[in-house]
Amino acid sequence: MKPRSLVSQSPTSLKLTTGCEALDACLRGGFPCNSLTEIVAESGCGKTQLCLQLSLRAQLPISNGGLNGSSLYLHSELPFPFRRLHQLSKSFHLSNPNIYADHNDNPCDHVFVQNVHSVDHLLDVMPKIDSFVKSSRTRLPLKLIVLDSVAALFRSEFENTPGDLRKRSSLFFKVSGKLKRLADRFGLVVVITNQVTDFVESSDGLSGLRIGNLRGLYSSGRRVVPALGLAWANCVNSRVFISRSGDGICEERREDDESGSSSVGRRDRRRFDIVFSPYLPASSCEFVITREGICGVG
């Protein structure tokens, strides 16, 4: 057993950029390799958008902020948004034609999609990823794994009894351990999305337990907590939170009245927060989702 040299590798680990300057600034360059990053948000905040964008951008050369690799999209929430991926890939192809020109292929060729419908299925798929990476005959090596979403896998299958909860948290660590091992072995970026649940005050005060930089997470004006609880929070390296502001549609209408064609209302803005991370300070930024993908605003 030999220690790994910390000096031989480049001091800043390789990162996958999001393509949005504001987000990349928050993430100090993007999503890091050899690490497991969780995106927490309520539905409709852009988790999947961001993941789709990442799975395309991973194909960019390293000098352009990509990883020169393909991506594996494990999705547990049906159906997979093929149309949206296709839409994004068209504009991505147009802006980066030279990557595909020589090989006569398409960005969608390098996004592998696998449906996972249960935890057991996921555990079944994982060893296959191992051999997939090693014996890969694809042009680009696998560099990104997206799991969208972890909550859908775990939220349905288990009862709320102490025995089931214990079994469930043991599985959290198993899944996370395997993903981390893959990430470490092949230098992968692993991105996991997670849902939120409404915050319900409990007598012991544990549901409001503060985890990370923010005292409480608020989205659409409600207080929410990441799904799967404290045990799962121990399983990820970094956690980011995407939220929608709560102030309602009225404001959006007023803006519309003033400018006539303003398509970016306050409500469409999403806020991006670093909840915790071993290398990032607390920070936040705002972005909107356009036809071409995610883009930061002032």
Partner: peptide, 16 residues
Amino acid sequence: AIYIDTEGSFMVERAL
């Protein structure tokens, strides 16, 4: 120092 990392949270850039 010996640093035994079981979680993958040690980041070289942060240590630097």
